[in-house]
Amino acid sequence: MHNSDLFFNNLPLFVPLIVLELGLLIAALVSLYRRQTVRHGNRLIWTLAIVLVQPFGAIAYFIFGREVD
């Protein structure tokens, strides 16, 4: 059995997960680049966290990094 078999045998479970995580990633990046500042760290660090650590990076950004209006 290969990894790809695992993936294709469970598409009804994987597809909604991927859609959700992509949605969250896009929402986080849009929010990050609309604002001039972040609360902790800088934009580059948050971009890396959001893109590389799915989905925790985006969630952490919304809770800890996003500048409150």
């Binding site: 909604p16 997960l17 959700l20 995580e21 949605g23 969250l24 929402a27 929010s31 989905p55 969630i59 919304f62 809770i63 996003r66 409150v68 209006d69």
Partner: peptide
């Protein structure tokens, strides 16, 4: 809604 609390909870709990 504006603080993305609804979004975070919705996405995480659906996941």
């Amino acid at each position: 809604w504006r603080n993305y609390h609804v979004l975070i909870l919705a996405v995480v709990f659906v996941i």
